[in-house]
Nucleic acid binder design. Structure first.
Lengths: 201, 201
DNA sequence: GATCATACGTACCGATCGGTAACATAGTCA
DNA sequence: TGACTATGTTACCGATCGGTACGTATGATC
């Protein structure tokens, strides 16, 4: 819900202000590339070609905008994560490895910035920040999804395998930023395969 | 080198200002717990019981103090990481697993904040920041050390195994913050053992 | 054409940011 | 005593922070 409307108004097809969309798009790019704390609202609105009041008409605060950015980010994540479903229906392992292959490529490119959701949790240690809540909820969802996929693969201990794969995922997000092009993320696929093989029987 | 002295003065046994040590200690705790960007210099000096000029007499800037904090952090890291050497000499695998066991415990405690060095890289995406440089240099050192240990273990492909273990490490740092007490870090030891076993022959 | 809601901009707010100038005080060593 | 160093005190700087009061342009409806 991007808008902070008061009245229910004409159904739910609320015609959003165009400025709000521009802000949203710009904020998402800047927050991801530079970090949330590093970017001021002034920079967002100026790059979006609008002004501050336009921002605060659609978002209650910067924190609110940050949370919205993460919701957008999460939506985009799931699209990529579940893309393998179409190519490999009824093959959880192939679906997962499809995502891993793409991730390994992205994470060994220069300028990679990892996962926006994980980064937000690093930036905001306090449990009360709205952005952090979005991120933590998502990660729990992801973990549950991984467990379900490991069950579908027929793993001996789906929980443990899912934990291992999640550690590899988060490790890839971090390592992609830490090391340049020849970082450990290049071995993600090989290692994940080994781990899955070892967990199946 | 904590002090920004100009003159070489009496040998290297520079009697450091006591205020500098208090600042250093306080900064380290606050920077780690709350993040570097989240903590202002005013808060550091007031909590340390000193004043701002004292900070800037010993450190050129906040960025400089942040870099110093990470150097301290790195020193502490290596002490913990190499602690297993004493208990298990000539057994690289046992040394490594000793660290992993301790890490898994820490990372499944409430309030865990991950690796200060990794966090700094997340906070400062720009390649030029002094804190980021300290962190990246350290991570490269760590990677080299892991490769050496994997060679000592007799791994088929020491590089790939080291990459995998590094991904698990970074994944544990991140997951420790993302999930609470029952996070995937609890499976770190099990998964690492599986991976090592699969890589030995 | 008057009315009214919506969308947007100009100009500003107080607070805090990192950092500094200038001076006073205390201890140390010769 | 005198020179030197370390520290505190106070007051300040310009810049930027997140956020807002208030006026204006536009477009639809009666």
């Amino acid at each position: 819900m991007p808008i902070k409307r008061n009245e229910p108004s004409s159904s739910d097809k609320e015609t959003k202000p165009k400025a709000a969309e521009r802000i949203r798009h710009t904020a998402r790019e800047l927050f991801y590339r530079e970090g949330i704390r590093a970017i001021g609202v002034e920079e967002i609105v100026s790059r979006a070609g609008v002004t501050k009041p336009s921002l605060y008409r659609s978002y209650a605060s910067k924190d609110d905008l940050a949370a919205e950015y993460l919701r957008d980010y999460e939506g985009a994540f799931w699209k990529v994560f579940e893309a393998g479903k179409a190519e490999h229906p009824d093959d959880a392992r192939a679906q997962l490895m499809s995502y891993f292959e793409g991730l390994a490529q992205r994470a060994t490119q220069g300028g990679y910035r990892g996962c926006g959701l994980t980064n937000a949790v690093v930036e905001y240690p306090g449990d009360d920040h709205p952005a952090r809540k979005v991120a933590q909820t998502h990660k729990r969802k992801l973990r549950a999804r991984l467990i379900a996929m490991c069950e579908a693969m027929g793993a001996r201990s789906p929980d443990v395998l899912a934990d291992g794969l999640l550690l590899l995922l988060e490790g890839t997000y971090a390592s992609g930023q830490l090391f340049g092009k020849q970082g450990p993320a290049r071995s993600l696929v090989t290692v994940a395969e080994q781990l899955i093989d070892a967990s199946l029987r």
